[in-house]
Design a protein around this nucleic acid. Sequence first.
DNA 1: AATTATTTTTAGATTTGTCTAAAATTAATT
DNA 2: AATTAATTTTAGACAAATCTAAAAATAATT
Lengths: 219, 219
Amino acid sequence: MSFSITEENYIKAIFHLQQEDGNVSTNELAAELHTKAASVTDMLKKLKAKKLLSYEKYKGVRLSADGKKLALGIVRKHRLWEYFLVDTLQFGWDEVHEVAEELEHITSKKLVEKLDAFLGHPKFDPHGDPIPDSHGKMAVQQHINLIDLPINKMAEVSGVGSQSTELLELLKHKHIGIGTKLEIKKKFSFDHSIEIKIKNQNAFTISQQLAQALFVKIV
Amino acid sequence: MSFSITEENYIKAIFHLQQEDGNVSTNELAAELHTKAASVTDMLKKLKAKKLLSYEKYKGVRLSADGKKLALGIVRKHRLWEYFLVDTLQFGWDEVHEVAEELEHITSKKLVEKLDAFLGHPKFDPHGDPIPDSHGKMAVQQHINLIDLPINKMAEVSGVGSQSTELLELLKHKHIGIGTKLEIKKKFSFDHSIEIKIKNQNAFTISQQLAQALFVKIV
DNA sequence: AATTATTTTTAGATTTGTCTAAAATTAATT
DNA sequence: AATTAATTTTAGACAAATCTAAAAATAATT
């Protein structure tokens, strides 16, 4: 059985949303996919008929085993292509997401396996997210949210919570990227902003929103 | 202005067909695209409205300057990806066409230019076809049809006339590929078959159809 | 030149994915 | 508990790309 690009995008969006949520609502999906709730309802019926998910009226949606498998395949392709773009073609890590959104729908299985081998079976993509292997297994990276990092504990930025160009632009401006080593110097309860210090730089504060979008691992 | 994958495939098909023909007929296009004449007519109206081609009822079709530019861009991507698949990912030259049919529709201009640079600005793809540069210019390879090769003149296979899997399967079986050195020993007027001899091999005959599908350059 | 055959176009229907507006259901609040 | 608000679904319509069947135009043949 084969799936359209649209169907694949629905499955991928549900996969990402259900990481946190468990069950995913129609409105959440509509927002994620920049479409309307009515369109989502229509598509969910179709995907249910294809046994990619379980869905009951008004009860939200959850991927089936087949759906998860499909989603992991798409995520695998997306992250391998991101790795390729950065590692092989010298793209900036903040400019590969949109291109990978297209490349992830190329169907050839052989291409994926050859690309994976050529890249040396990488475990993490340039944003710090784990790449599922050909069986759908992925390494678990103990990402902590920066907001939860204890004060004065050195950590390394290992992932970002979103791929939005707005976020990536801000990070570029502040010279924060994957691998950046930093520690928290102060937490301000008034607006939940935090003061961070990057090695060899002066300390500066970042907003709660930004801190929540950054994941780190303690080093 | 951007174009759907379907529109791009029409433009590409017209480009290839008009190389020989000049004006391309509705039925030719329908055959090439495995669709029906009625569908072609509908699409030609749309592409005319987008100024990619000139088209008058019952008179056939011809690409405009814009249409040619678009076609060359698609051909460029197709052939660069084929080169990548063979050269970088170690695909066989006979198994890359279908994958490149998908990859050629990836839109990022930056990707194309970075890929081109990474590959070292190749001039010909693995089938011996020239790769247009970023301005749409391509090297002219003096491909001669094998049928026109003089007897006992050593030549090197430089291209194939079609990408059909049937042809590629036959070539694989006969151990003929790009770069194969051969000469014609006899031509049989009865069925226009020819006897060829590949270096270090016994001579054997090939059909007119096969000979017409092979292009060589005299060495 | 008239007739037959082929090619091409039109007309109307279908599928996929989307939309708006209205109805139905569930959640929140008074 | 009753009402309001928010969410979700249904109903009907639309655009893209396709199809079949019939009509129109062009080409081929007698």
